[in-house]
Structure formats: C-alpha cells, structure tokens
Design a protein around this nucleic acid. Structure first.
Lengths: 211, 211
DNA sequence: CCGCTGGGTTACCCCTGAGTAGGATCGCCG
DNA sequence: CGGCGATCCTACTCAGGGGTAACCCAGCGG
C-alpha cells in the first residue's frame, strides 16, 4: 500500500559505539517510535533500548527517567506543531487563506511520517500534570492566536472569540486525526479544502448574520 | 464556588452489608468517580474499594478484573452519549435546530455531574483494543448519523460527508470540553448558541457556495 | 606496557499494584 | 440452637517493569 515496506524498520547494529550526542539523538528516535505505537504505559524502557540496539543503562545515562524521556519528546512535538500553526497564521493577512493554511498545518502535522501527533493529541499520560500542562498549552496557545484574528474583525468578547477558536481548532484536530485513520482515502488537499471551507463558511463575517 | 461543597463526597459507612445488586451498583458508582478523576492507570483497585467502604475482594466478587470494570463503565457512558445524540438528531426535522440540539447534547454530556465524559473523550487506556474500539465506535456512529443528514440535502459523496461530520463532531466535543475546564464562565446556553451558530453557518447549504 | 576515560553490558534489586486463599460474621430457616 | 449460604475481611502471593550496582573493553597518552 504505502511506498516501502515498513514492517521491520531498523534493527540497528548491536555493538556499534557512538559519540554521546549521536547516541542521544538515536535514543530519542527509538523512543519516539515506541511511544507513538504503544503509548506511554504499554511502552517499556527495555523495548526502547532494544529498538535502539542498546542496553537499558545506556538509556539512563542519557535520560534520568521514563517520564523525562517522554517529556523531551512531547516538548519537541509540541514546539513543532506550534511553530507550524504560527507560521500558517502569519503566512498571509487574508483570513480565508489563513484558515486554509492553518488547516493544512494540522493535516501536515498529523500526516507526518513520524506520527508524533499521537503524543500531543492522544497521550495516555494525561494524569501526569507535566503532560497535561504541555498538551493543554498547545491547544490553548493555538486557540489564542486564532482567537486574536477572530476578535480583530468581529465584535465578540475575548471569551466568546476564544470558545469559537477552540471549536475551530478542535475541528481541525479531530478531522485530521480521522483522516489519517482512513489511510488517506480522501487525498490530502481535498480533505483540507473541504474542512477549510466548512470552517471558513462558519467563521467569516460571524456576528453580522448571527440570527 | 459551586453550589455545595463536594470536597469529601461520601466516606460510606464501613461494615454495612448490602444485597448483591445494590453493592454492585455502588461499586460502579465508586469506580466511576475514581476513574474519572485519576484515569485508568493511576486508579487503584484499593482506591475504588476504599471509596466504596469495602475491601478489595468484594470488588472482585462483582467484577473479574480491573479492565472489565472499566469497560462496564465505558459501555455505560458510551451508550449514554450515543442515546443523547440520537435523540437530539431525531428531535426535529429542521436541520438548523438539529445542529443546536446536537450541540446541546454534547454540552449536556460533558457538563454532567458525573463527568463520565472523561472516560469516552479522555481515556488513558487507548492502547487497549477493547477500549479503542468503544471510543472510536461512539465517534464513528455519531458521525455516521450526522453524515446522513448532511448527505441528504447536499451533493457530497459519502466519504466527503463523513469527513465533514467528523469535523463537526470534533468541534462539539473539543469546544464542550474546553468549556467545562473554564468552570462554565460562559453560560451554557450562550456557549451552545455560539458554537451552534458557527457549525450551522459552516454546514448549511454547503456545496452551493463552495467557492 | 600501563592505566585512565568514555561508552557499553550483564545481572540484579525492589516496589507497586493486580489478583487470591482462607477465614470470620451476619441473617435466616428448620 | 445448629447449620448454611450469603457477604465481607485480613493477609498474602506474585509478576512486571522502572531503575541501579558492578563490571567490561576499546583506544590512547605517557
């Protein structure tokens, strides 16, 4: 189906020595793959170590705990998403195109090879405050940016604008996630076009037709 | 802040004997409270038992495992939500009102005292297939129903209609969840009105203005 | 050749928390 | 009163997995 067979990605050569920084990067890579597939709880430090072709203590020479490792990855993904969204919103001053660009950003993020969106959107460690904070912050700040654009040319209060912004963000997030689970049956650009249209029709000139 | 102080809900009288069915119901109640607050993983069977004023083996006389107990609750909540959504969609034939009613359904579900929405929308056991299935099914079937309404009077393909339906569902779900975290700063009916307006403006007469 | 440093390994500790064995109590019926 | 069938409790087992102690070895400077 997909381009190349990704069944058994890489059983990396065991016994190879790496300089510290390179090893760290590789461990992050391995951990990302494991967490993305199994989630936090079902993932074992042994699994991650094995995936990297290394033994467990090596992992602990680079990261003090499972949680810290997870947070490192989560921070990475959060920052990634947020940068993408920010760029999208700043890419133009035309609000219609802003909507499309932002929607595209979400679909790109969710469709990315690494699937790191699972860390941000489907974390199974939300009982941990540190995780909750980060996950919430992404949504919060994305919504904040959208909210500013909305409030600009619509006479809504901050709270109202923010609620709508969250609604739009939610639409993007959930529809994009649904779209990947279908194996991209609908082509990406068409999906983006459809959902963007839905969002734009909803939000454009919002208050004036508020029957 | 809220009406009554719910700090220490009920430390039920220890040593009271109950008939089997009543005990079962009470255990479900206690388990619900604990799972809702801590999630699956952080919740202990001891916690649940203690909350019910009972010892652990009693719990196991009613439920064969932690997972089964969790699934029982999840099924309950899923059915609850789905019934609410179905009723909302069948409550009228006017599509504009349908949108409002459905949105109201989500806000009601999320705003409910029991907070069981956390089981369906924020489960931390999505790595378990049995849980994944149930959570996905709710969204899937809700979207299916919405999708039928959309496809009725709009010339979209099934896949396209379904994607938009998921987008709308996502909007409802995420904005409702956001709304509760704010402690209902915005009054419920106003929030519903706003988000419904957003959704309705987006979806009504969709294809004809698809510039 | 020696020893030191940095990267790596095996084999273990040990705590947490799901699940259980066996016994105590209460109420009831004959 | 004596048994008996529920309900419930104290006290335990045990596996899984995060985290660590102790040791290995390649390479290089002296």
């Amino acid at each position: 189906m997909t381009m190349s067979s990704r069944v058994i990605p890489e059983p990396p050569a065991r016994g190879v020595r790496l300089p510290r920084s390179a090893r760290r990067a590789q461990l992050l890579h391995a951990a990302r793959d494991v967490f993305v597939v199994h989630g936090y709880h079902a993932a074992g430090m042994d699994d991650i170590a094995e995936r990297a072709g290394v033994s467990k203590p090596v992992l602990y020479q680079h990261f003090p705990s499972k949680l810290e490792l997870y947070l490192a990855l989560l921070d990475q993904s959060s920052a990634d998403l947020q940068a993408t969204v920010r760029d999208a919103l700043e890419s133009t001053t035309d609000n219609k195109q802003r909507v499309t660009a932002t929607m595209q950003a979400y679909f790109d993020f969710v469709g990315a090879e690494s699937s790191t969106f699972r860390l941000v959107f489907e974390s199974d460690l939300t009982s941990e405050p540190a995780v909750r904070d980060r996950v919430d912050r992404v949504q919060q700040e994305s919504a904040e940016q959208v909210s500013e654009v909305i409030a600009e040319d619509a006479g809504l209060s901050d709270e109202q604008a923010h609620l709508l912004a969250v609604g739009l963000i939610g639409m993007a997030q959930v529809s994009a996630r649904y779209w990947v689970t279908t194996g991209q049956q609908i082509p990406a650009d068409e999906a983006v076009r459809l959902v963007s249209a839905l969002a734009w029709r909803g939000i454009s000139k919002f208050p004036r037709t508020g029957g």
